[in-house]
Write a protein that binds this DNA or RNA. Structure first.
Lengths: 189, 189
DNA sequence: TGTTTATGTCAGTCATATTGACATATATGC
DNA sequence: GCATATATGTCAATATGACTGACATAAACA
């Protein structure tokens, strides 16, 4: 049967699919002999799924708040980063988000039009439009970030500082660019 | 010097932006007196950003592979979970993805039409369409999952088992439903 | 037999992203 | 000062992924 190596059943409705293999211990066959347990296929798959579930839930509540105002997740990202780095330029933002300027344009213009973000001409380089949150923008930013911060804080508090440090290390390892890793420079510990 | 706690400048082009004041708020100050360091606003913000950067990079390479075949991230998720739980029903999948059946429909029909996924009538409950990957689907699933598994494995290997355990704990803490947490049953530690 | 469930579909809409082409103002190097 | 490069913006077309609402069918269940 194809279902020997399966994770546990999903729901009563699929009970038919099987009591299948209990905890699926052996799906975690080593990728190579001698690989430590935490690098087995099963553990790696779990990590993939954890990222999916956690990210989905992490963005869920902000998405709802934004939807009430006719905004989406893309607006959130812009508001977040402009709040984080006030006075950043458009190209800085593009560099972080890694989307095209046309994509950013629609979102950003909307935020400017609706009074969440202000654009000021740069003084050193007058081609630049430096971005800052208006009061209205800050208010929304706080609302959204509060939501996510509480979620993270709750998780952090529940697991303690060592687990948090492990989380940080793994996240840094997943990022593909040194530039991004550098944003989390060696912190006071 | 309100910018004490400000993240470092983003790029040479905004160096001028540096001492930009402002809305700094209490960034970095404890949320409440007595809160441990890892629960300070700055640390929580970093976690928010890490999730963004890590998720963005985590999905980047699969997105490119999929784009070559005219597929998107939504197809990836379907292929992934059908590969993970072969014989799952449509409602199981909806339950995991937490999208509407109409949204799933377009993606799933396309995958069936293009021969990545097979739908078989359930034997116990004949209303159900049980989903499995075809050979073609398995091939793509392996290609995509391999990519992500390698990324995770590299990160895991670099940081070691304790950090990985910390990562797991935090991710579980971020998930909002016990049902999802239960997918990662208490493992041998 | 009547109701609920699992699935599917039609239609309309919105948000987010893409590519490509082109425009303007400013900076910078020779 | 002129040529080129950079920062930003805009128009147009297109794809993808999500939503709501309405309705349809088959099978299970009470």
């Amino acid at each position: 049967m194809t279902d020997i190596n399966r994770p546990k059943p999903l729901s009563p409705t699929t009970a038919a699919t099987g009591p299948l293999s209990g905890s699926g211990r052996d799906r975690g066959r080593p990728l190579k002999t001698g690989n430590p347990l935490f690098l087995r296929e099963e553990e790696l798959r779990q990590a993939i799924e954890m990222l999916f579930y956690a990210y989905r839930d992490f963005t869920g509540e902000p998405d709802r708040i934004l939807a009430d105002r006719g905004l989406g997740r893309a607006h959130h990202r812009v508001i977040y980063f402009v709040g984080r780095y006030p006075g950043m330029s458009v190209s800085d933002l593009l560099n972080i988000l890694k989307i095209t300027k046309q994509s950013l344009s629609r979102v950003l213009s909307q935020l400017v039009t609706e009074g969440y973000i202000r654009q000021d001409q740069g003084t050193v380089d007058r081609r630049q439009r430096l971005l800052t949150l208006t009061d209205k923008g800050q208010e929304l930013e706080r609302l959204l970030t509060e939501t996510q911060r509480k979620l993270i804080a709750r998780a952090f508090r529940a697991v303690g500082p060592e687990a948090v440090e492990g989380f940080r290390e793994v996240m840094l390892g997943i990022m593909s660019s040194d530039e991004d890793r550098a944003r989390f420079g060696t912190r006071a510990e």
